[in-house]
Amino acid sequence: GTAAAQTTLKVSHYLPPVHGIHTDFIVPWTEQVTACTNGEIQFEIFPGGTQLGNVAKQQEQVLAGVVDIAHGLHGIPRGRFPRTSLIELPFLTDDAGAASETLWELYPDHLAPEYKGLKVLALHAHNGGLIHTSDKKVETMDDLKGLRLRTPSPAVSAMLTALGATPQGLPPGEVYENIQKTVIDGTVFPWDPVKSFGLNEVLKYHLDAGAYTVPFFFVMNERKYEGLSDTAKTCIDEASGAALVAKFGDWWDKWDAAGRQEAEAAGHTITALSPEERQRWRDALKPVTEAYIAETAKQVDDAQAIYDAMRAKLAEKGQQ
């Protein structure tokens, strides 16, 4: 038969090709679209470690048309997605499934303005992050006093400062040697990167605080999308959106489980934050949350409304 003209789309992301994001999510997604279009759409993937795998450039690459599709972190560089980043505020959610769906449901009415030029294929967020330490066991707020902890985002830095710890910005690849040399006392991460960066070798204590999450985007260049055939557009739509977002809860559980099992096998101490202590942290962090929203409101008029909408959606999903 006469095959339609082939189009090759470039996909980039910043995680190593052994990561679940690559093996469970992006590769199968591209295969699904290729099969659905009978081979019309092919993909070339550039994972972390390649020149196109720089975490800070994912959004720009898509906008510039250097790649067609990218998966990246909203928080790096910071401040580009102030609306979406409100999900990072402390104690909003500790569940990847609920957080991912909330983002997707709020996207059309509340978050869309910050994705100009982008066709948003999916938004998601990881399970509640933990506080991992090497020598000092953390159970209460007082244990955090003076600890130097690596943090992923300004929201988490503000949270740690309010709780008495010293936040330290550091590239994820440098965390291992800095913990090993006791330059920092630990790091704030979900379970998954603890395994992918080999950190269980240098950590001993894990406090399951469930205190924060971090959002991720999966986006396509809008003009490129509009220029595709109707079949291709339909296939991409079918593979993306709500159907894709719904998968992230289980995926994150699976990716995190590997890190937790590794820690358990190594005989580490894993503690959950007690309900009373959790309330103490919440109370202590109220001013941080308010200040962060006020700061965001300088850029985004309805920051408070978006935060409230996030809380309401998450409450519907049984969070808090």
Binding site: P77, G79, R80, T151, P154, P167, G169
Partner: peptide, 8 residues
């Protein structure tokens, strides 16, 4: 235009 600032 993005208003980029350093991470920490």
């Amino acid at each position: 235009m993005f208003g980029d600032r350093s991470q920490q």
